[in-house]
Design a protein around this nucleic acid. Sequence first.
DNA 1: TAGGCCATCTGGTCCT
DNA 2: AGGACCAGATGGCCTA
Length: 256
Amino acid sequence: MDSDAGSTCSRSSSPDLVVDDSAGSFFSNKMFQAYCQKNRADSEASQGRTEHSSGGGKAKTRSELTKEEMQDLRLKVNSRERKRMHDLNQAMDGLREVMPYAHGPSVRKLSKISTLLLARNYILMLSSSLEEMKKLVGDVYGGNAAVQSRTSAHPTITPAAPTAHLPLHPLSQSLHSLVGSTATTLQHHTSSPSSAPHSPPSTSFLGFHTPVQGLLKDPLHLTSSYRHFPGMPCPCSLCQPLPTTTSTLHSLSMNK
DNA sequence: TAGGCCATCTGGTCCT
DNA sequence: AGGACCAGATGGCCTA
């Protein structure tokens, strides 16, 4: 099979892909143009036909197409499929960009499956963090209600400024420890690409105590045999779904 | 060299 | 009918 176009761009997920709306994005990139030129040169070498050899009349059925027209159709379908896959890879790159792992030229790019599994775990981690934060906020406002009922008996204390009397210190401590630990952890892992210059990025920041390779490489881990890690949201099928976390996300956004 | 990962091609299926 | 989506096949590149 002549998939020679793939050999020129096999490493990058979106090879030479330039976003150029005016030119139709992918179809403007040099690799593809060269590829099209090559294919056209191959297919048009025998008969000098134009792009649409049917010449505009009524549409032919597929069985009525000539060999060249079929070939042309095939090329069109192939390029569409190529563009579709490139769009998919662009989205995958976009996902990689927001993933908290070591970015850099010296760090190998996450594979697609690793990206997806990591993104899933990251979302679960964020959801659990949000849940914990919501709990803390609930605790604070619960205490605030008690304080308000007490202060209403004292006219010298204005209930219009309750935050001035809130026990903010413990809350801020908790939040800072929660957010701070996450931030420092993420910072630590995003800023340490040199720890493994040519090895796949580790996801130990997500609480994995085993190398991410072992965890992510085996899709069977997503079944009930998935390893459980202390303090980490578990993506295994036994622990699914997570209605509390999703509902938390929903309710928080709705309560805004 | 084997295995992992990837891009591409291709034919089938479904949807508009 | 045309396009999107999908999965299998194929071959190339890279690393252990």
